[in-house]
């Protein structure tokens, strides 16, 4: 019996037809995603137009970084509910700096400081304070949002330097959106780190069994700490990209319901709540699935509340799949 729970999507390519329940479920999801894309291509007008495809690829970057950060955290056995509000916190700080004349480079550095700052708070509390990730990051989520509101007195920040806006929200070769390039680049690097390096193996092992990992000499607390800092960093990167694309920084740059999207992408990609499974590649596939769905809703003119509701129910179904998958 060949079973490789940690490399869920790889069971397909290296062994042939997947044997484990987990492998089969992942194969089913991948198959479903392909079917969805095909169906949508046929039924939804303008879906396969280049403009639309490029729009989709740009959209990947809005949640992509957060999903990658969430993947690292979830594989190590934790969860980060705060990353999406840290985006706002980082964005308003950087945008306010830019609007009052600070150089865009320095402002982006500020965003990174904010992101890593919140990540550090999470990391310290969870890795060394031994507190429960869910509640800690729930608190940080509220704190980050409160911070953003306090910092701007609930107003949005515009007046951003056009150099910055154009550089990041522009297109390379006049065609490929810069954000798409950034997200693909980050995804490739992240996938490599998680699946092929010592650090990545540590993350998987800690997620599988923290106690065994500690006794085996793996630096558990430090590794967990870094996953949260990384997640905070990803929030800052999202802030950089989103602020440029939207042209303003607001206190709710990523809406509440996106949190579930982020978690769902990692779960579709093979991560489980317990940790020890999942992959960046899988998460990106899940992200593609959701982005395509959103795009389709948009093109079909589905009113936002209904889309939200439908997605909520679909995602509940996806989570149910995770239960089936882990037996």
């Amino acid at each position: 019996m060949l079973d490789r729970p940690a490399e869920s999507l790889r069971t397909f390519s290296t062994i042939g037809f997947p044997q484990s329940r987990r492998g089969k479920t992942n194969a089913a999801i991948a198959f479903g995603a392909i079917v969805l894309v095909v169906v949508l291509s046929i039924t939804v007008p303008h879906f396969t137009r280049l403009r639309n495809v490029l729009a989709i690829s740009e959209q990947l970057s809005f949640l992509g970084f957060l999903s990658i950060g969430m993947t690292f955290v979830m594989v190590s056995g934790g969860i980060d509910l705060s990353s999406y509000t840290v985006v706002s916190a980082a964005a308003v700080v950087g945008a306010t700096a830019m609007a009052s004349g600070t150089s865009p480079l320095l402002s982006c550095a500020l965003m990174i400081v904010v992101g890593i700052g919140f990540g550090t708070v999470n990391g310290v509390a969870i890795a060394w304070g031994r507190m429960i990730p869910f509640i800690v990051t729930l608190s940080t989520m509220v704190l980050a949002q409160g911070f953003a509101i306090w910092y701007t007195h609930a107003e949005s920040v515009s007046d951003l330097p056009s150099g910055y806006v154009n550089a990041i929200s522009g297109r390379l070769v006049g065609l490929i959106p810069v954000p798409a390039i950034i997200i693909i680049g980050v995804a490739v690097i992240a996938e490599f780190v998680l699946s092929r390096t010592q650090f990545g193996r540590w993350v998987y092992l800690i997620g599988t069994n923290e106690h065994t990992a500690r006794i085996s000499g793996i630096p558990v607390a430090l590794t967990q700490f870094f996953t949260y800092v990384f997640s905070g960093l990803m929030a800052a990167v999202t802030a950089m990209v989103l602020t440029a694309v939207l042209g303003t920084a607001t206190t709710a740059m990523v809406q509440d319901d996106r949190l579930l999207d982020i978690i769902a992408t990692t779960v579709i990609g093979g991560a489980g709540l317990a940790g020890g499974t999942g992959s960046v590649a899988g998460t990106m596939l899940g992200l593609l699935f959701l982005t395509v769905l959103d795009n389709a809703f948009n093109l079909l003119g589905v009113p936002p509340f209904i889309g939200m509701t439908i997605k909520g129910f679909i995602l509940v179904g996806v989570i149910g799949l995770d239960v089936v998958r882990s037996g």
Binding site: P5, A6, Q198, W202, L205, T208, N209, T212
Partner: peptide
């Protein structure tokens, strides 16, 4: 079961876990 092995992981990953460097 509690802290000696990584139960769902394959044997070889368990064996090398302490000496990954």
């Amino acid at each position: 079961r509690a802290d000696g092995l990584f139960m769902p992981q394959p044997v070889w990953k368990n064996i090398t876990a302490t000496s990954l460097e």
